[in-house]
Simulated scan of single mutants.
Amino acid sequence: MIRSIVASTAHALATGLALALAMPLAALPVATPAAAQADRCPKLVAKSPFIAPPGPRIVPAAYVGERQVGLTYIGHSTFLIETAGGVTVATDYNDYVRPSVVPRVATMNRAHSTHYSLNPDPGIEYVLKGWREDRDPVRYDLDVGDLWIGNLPTNIRDYQGGTIRNGNSIFVFRAADICIAHLGHLHHTLTEEDLGALGRIDVVLAPVDGSYTLDVDGMVEVLKALEAPLVIPMHYFNEGTLNRFLDRFASSQYTIERRESPELVLSRETLPMKPTVIVLPGSLY
Score class of each variant (00 low, 15 high):
V138F: 01
I2V: 05
E133M: 11
Y254F: 15
D92Q: 13
G86S: 12
I232M: 00
T78R: 07
N155V: 07
E257K: 07
E227D: 14
I164A: 08
P275V: 07
R135T: 05
G123K: 12
L284Y: 09
A20K: 10
N166Y: 09
T107N: 09
S267I: 01
L264G: 03
E193V: 14
V138A: 03
Y285A: 08
Y116V: 08
V45C: 12
M23F: 13
R57Q: 13
V89E: 03
P229R: 08
Q68Y: 06
I124K: 02
F249D: 00
R248D: 00
E66K: 14
Y96Q: 10
V6E: 06
V231M: 06
V220M: 09
D95K: 01
M108T: 07
S77Y: 02
E125N: 12
P233C: 01
Y236N: 03
G196L: 09
A26Y: 05
L230G: 03
Y73A: 07
T72E: 11
G167K: 02
I81E: 05
P137C: 13
R139H: 06
I232D: 00
L44V: 15
R40F: 02
A84F: 03
L118V: 14
R57N: 13
D217H: 14
L183F: 08
S113R: 10
I256P: 07
T255G: 09
V97W: 05
G150Q: 11
Y212G: 04
R135W: 00
A31F: 01
D136Q: 15
D177A: 03
H185K: 04
A250T: 13
V59G: 13
H11W: 09
I278V: 06
G16E: 15
D217N: 14
A10W: 05
N166M: 12
E193A: 15
L152R: 08
L264I: 06
I51M: 10
P29M: 12
A90V: 02
A18E: 06
T270L: 13
T270F: 13
M234F: 00
Y96I: 08
A61R: 12
S8R: 04
S4Q: 12
L198I: 03
E192P: 01
Q37C: 11
M1C: 02
T91D: 03
T241W: 00
M273S: 12
R268Q: 04
I2C: 01
A20D: 09
D141G: 14
E192G: 13
V64I: 08
R248C: 06
A181R: 04
G199R: 05
I5Y: 15
H187Y: 13
L214E: 05
G282K: 04
N168Q: 10
L71A: 02
P49D: 14
M234W: 00
D39M: 12
V30E: 05
L205Q: 04
I2D: 03
L128C: 08
A61N: 06
Y93C: 11
Y285S: 10
Y140K: 04
S261M: 12
K43C: 04
D215S: 15
T107K: 04
G85V: 01
A106S: 13
D134C: 07
G161V: 04
A18M: 09
G75C: 03
R244H: 11
W131R: 09
M219D: 00
Y73K: 09
R132Y: 05
A197D: 15
